[in-house]
Amino acid sequence: MKRFYLVGFALLLAFDSLNLVCFKMAGAHALPVEVSTAWLARVFAHPWIYGAVLGYIGAFVTWMSLLKHAPIGPAFAASHLEVVSVMALSWWLFAEPVRPTQIAGAIAIVAGIVCLAIAEGDEGADAHAVPA
């Protein structure tokens, strides 16, 4: 089960990041932003938008697979690791500044997910002791 969650959340993070980076690139290529068919045509003329769509579909399939076993409360919280990866990627790929408070928030998110991972390990031990 540990491996199931590890692979699942890693895949979810990868698809979410793909989605985000592709959206950013598609948006940048389609400037200026306007509510018009011409702008939509520009967005869909670039291959980036299809990467974003692939990211959406991949993330959906991964999420539905994770929820087969994962409880929704902790899983939804853990999916916010995306906030940290988005921050890291926007800093690394797009040279966007990261503020100290944002780093503090990121540390709290990672600490929370570590707690959830440890809690899940305990639950796993329980499950073995009392087969459902």
Partner: peptide, 26 residues
Amino acid sequence: REKLSPLRVTGILLVAAGVAIVGAGS
């Protein structure tokens, strides 16, 4: 009826606090 052990609640609240801090500090 998902089990909310103290460690799970702590983890979820830490993540929520972290997201709030990121939002407040952006």
